[in-house]
């Protein structure tokens, strides 16, 4: 059994095109090398001026035309089903943001890696929070751009149990190559169990949960490591040189600066870090949640 319902059609088209290609490549190369030695000056001191040959030229125009129409046809025929998900497909929202995938299931459960049931059509509604991404599952032969402001979708039916790679295929900045995840295909019953099992977050600081949910930790480490943005470790109370309106000023990181950086991140960037990479979270993170984040940051000494 193939990993998804699209594997057979895509692979057939691939083998068809590659087969014809190898035939022509080998043929052209062999004839070229044969002529090169057969008609060397030594073997053929006097050349013949052959200007054209209508019959031959018609043949080598018509034959490739027929072949490319066949290739086109299979390309189209196997692609067409990808355009529309079957009615009743299970819908999952796939959210891409720099640099993390989040999957939201019908009942509201969220996860960082995709989990789907075996043999059920799954439709992914693709949402980007910032720039272009593309959701790519090589084993399933599916890929679709995740574009801000555009409601793209993709669908597939997983046909084999297992865990497969899931990549971001559209360049999205610094950590593009780390924006990867997995798809796990479970038996229907296991899937239903998984869906109702909520991870135990009772021990986790609510501020940390919010940071995880919004992919903050992709860029800001908790252990002092330099990532895309300044580390959260010991952030509150630290003195930083920031660039505000093109001027360098020194400030002590306090509540107000944290709030400003969440709402208008590019207003004052810490010197040495790149501008323009962080989006505003003004509409996604509430004031209470910001309080919880700050409360959590205070604990990260």
């Amino acid at each position: 059994m193939n990993a998804s319902n699209f594997v057979e059609g895509v692979d057939f088209t691939m083998y068809l095109i590659l087969g014809i290609s190898v035939f022509f490549l080998v043929g052209i190369t062999a004839v070229m090398i044969y002529f090169l030695f057969r008609y060397r000056k030594k073997n053929n001191p006097v050349a013949t001026n052959i200007t054209h040959n209508n019959k031959l030229e018609v043949i080598w125009t018509v034959v490739p035309t027929i072949l490319v129409v066949i290739m086109f046809y299979y390309g189209w025929a196997e692609y067409k089903p990808m355009l529309r998900a079957p009615k009743g497909a299970m819908e999952i929202e796939a959210i891409g943001q720099m640099w993390k995938w989040t999957f939201v299931y019908p009942d509201g459960k969220m996860s960082d890696s995709l989990v789907v049931p075996l043999d059920k059509p799954v439709k992914l509604n693709l949402v980007s929070k910032d720039v272009l991404h593309a959701l790519y599952i090589p084993a399933f032969r599916v890929k679709q751009d995740v574009t801000p402001g555009v409601n793209n979708m993709m669908w597939f039916t997983a046909q084999k149990l297992g865990t497969y790679d899931l990549f971001c295929a559209e360049y999205c900045g610094q950590l593009h190559s780390y924006m990867l995840s997995t798809v796990t295909v479970l038996e229907s019953s296991d899937y239903n169990t998984w869906l109702v099992t909520q991870p135990d977050l009772s021990d986790e600081h609510p501020g940390l949960t919010i940071l995880k949910k919004n992919a903050c930790l992709s860029c800001h480490s908790r252990d002092g490591t330099r990532l895309v943005g300044p580390s959260f470790k010991g952030l509150l109370g630290r003195n930083e040189v920031v660039i505000r309106d093109g001027n360098e000023t020194e400030l002590m990181v306090d509540r107000d600066y944290i709030i400003e950086s969440i709402k208008i991140p590019n207003a004052a960037i810490v010197k040495g870090y790149l501008q323009g990479l962080m989006i505003s979270y003004e509409t996604t993170v509430s004031d209470e949640e910001i309080d919880q984040i700050i409360n959590y940051l205070e604990s990260l000494k």
Binding site: G9, V10, T13, M14, M71, G75, W76, M82, V142, K143
Partner: peptide
């Protein structure tokens, strides 16, 4: 391979 729709997706 890239001009054909189904294989281009991959």
């Amino acid at each position: 391979v890239l001009g054909a729709l189904a294989t281009d997706v991959h």
